[in-house]
Design a protein around this nucleic acid. Structure first.
Lengths: 287, 287
DNA sequence: CGTCGATCATAGAATTTTGTATAGCAACGA
DNA sequence: TCGTTGCTATACAAAATTCTATGATCGACG
């Protein structure tokens, strides 16, 4: 009953769910409206529940359909992962294919490119795709093959490797310090214009686990994009944590309380355990 | 290219992968051997890689096929989850369907039945399935709708609720104490015949986080089944940690160092976040 | 109030997919 | 050595699915 035909019906279900109508889904998928209609019909019959209420303006999903949406999307991501895994290949000496890497913006723009460039000179058949954002929860959904993270991955189905420690320090633009003066004590600092993360609790907690008694409320400027944070510091908006290696290239950035405040961010590589066997992934993972 | 047809081809791929031959897969799935053969052919053409080497004794999977197997299985489990989610339903006042619960053996046999019985008197349309084992890594694979665990779940996609603290103590059978004497100090205890877990590091770490300086090597009898551990203690094999509520029902079990050694195990309920919206799951989750 | 544009539902033709039957091949055992 | 048994590969008929075309319904709008 649950066997063969149904798998592709779920794809049609997803399309109708997203487009909101049989006709729209038909246009999007290249099938025709009657076909999609029959698919939904079959799926409803096979599952024994109504999925949509038909109307002349489209199909309205029932509660049951909304409840099934996450599972259907899980199938879709698994299918996407399968296709991605199939594109990888070759052997250990000449791996090929496209590898999607997810990383924070600052990693992707300032740190990763030279590393990836080095890999490509050795393995020219590997193509890279970068997905840059600061969320940390998307590898189990397999949006990417490899994730670069700033905290130790805990999920059991991930294979993790610690790349290195990145030393961070507090920096501010010269103009900011001229206007507001440089803080000298921790109390000064907490009252300063701090720049930090918005919703990304994890990073805050990691940083706060060090010496600073800060919470989200201490930040005068909040943004989850570390690239924008860097820009904010450069624009003289306030004091923010920046990698030493990056700050050194910006002549107008001045370290703040460099003796007192110093912390490390760990850089981790995470790979889904299903992907580690791919030669191309293996190469990149082992840097 | 990657759109519609392929989804069901993956099901055929899985069947051939498992059965090792087109004919065997045909028998198992109710299709015919030429159909399966064409499916594999299509899949190979669509992905652009060879999946099997044909021989007169069956189909031998290539490395590429082996690498795709986990992703295909992920699709299958997502499909299974979808079907399970579809079977649940009803509304908030009269939820219905089958709920799979995974729990440790001792939980499933001694603690859960009265609780589930109480739920069933209120919601007679809910059917329960119990999956009993002591592994902790199977909810993301969606083998079950609800998991009862003895450690706090950390995965971000899980919704967790702490049920209660279960107080544990060390117990031994009367006959064991008569033969070997009751330990009075921690040093005595470490040298005793301790009963504990085998490969389940997690539980060991939680217990060891308390006062006892024990590692896996201290156990004279190791087994990952807590039910078997209880039986071992009852058989006089040694000293083991047992829930007070359970030990109290066994007249021949004597508490060991009850004043000094006492620890709590947390009981957590974990639900995949995709499932929490189902009325039936919600009811059980909220006990 | 009628028209237009959008939708879903429904028939019949065309295409695709599946099943049946058979041939060919290798391995195993008497 | 021969027969049996399992397997895959191929040709052709049958069944299922799909597409095309059309009708019916509802809402928007001048």
């Amino acid at each position: 009953m649950i066997d063969d035909l149904e798998w592709s019906l779920v794809a049609s279900f997803l399309a109708v769910m997203r487009l909101g109508s049989l006709s729209g889904a038909a246009r999007a998928t290249g099938m025709t409206q009657p076909t999609l209609g029959r698919h939904i019909e079959q799926l409803e019959a096979a599952l024994g529940i109504g999925l949509f209420t038909r109307s002349s303006s489209g199909l309205l999903p029932t509660d049951a359909a909304l409840a099934l949406l996450p599972q259907a999307e899980a199938m879709e991501t698994a299918m996407a992962a399968l296709v991605r895994a199939a594109r990888l290949g070759g052997d250990a000496v000449s791996p090929c294919g496209t590898i999607r890497i997810t990383a924070s913006e600052i990693m992707g723009t300032l740190v990763l490119p030279p590393i990836l460039s080095a890999i490509r000179t050795q393995h020219p058949k590997i193509i890279f795709e970068l997905v840059l954002n600061n969320r940390t929860d998307n590898l189990l959904q397999r949006d990417a093959d490899i994730a670069v993270r700033m905290v130790r991955p805990t999920q059991t189905r991930l294979v993790a490797r610690k790349l290195r420690d990145v030393p961070l320090g507090l920096y501010a633009h010269r103009s900011y310090l001229e206007r507001f003066g440089a803080p000298r004590t921790v109390e000064d600092l907490v009252r300063s214009h701090l720049i930090g993360f918005d919703r990304d609790d994890l990073t805050i907690r990691v940083v706060a686990a060090g010496i600073l008694p800060i919470t989200r409320d201490n930040f005068a400027f909040r943004c989850d994009s570390d690239m924008a944070q860097l820009a904010a510091v450069e624009a003289g908006l306030g004091i923010g944590g920046i990698q030493h290696a990056i700050a050194r290239q910006k002549p107008d950035l001045v370290p703040v309380m460099a003796e007192t405040i110093r912390f490390n961010l760990e850089v981790w590589l995470a790979v889904h355990q299903d992907m580690i066997r791919q030669p191309a992934v293996r190469i990149v993972f082992d840097t």
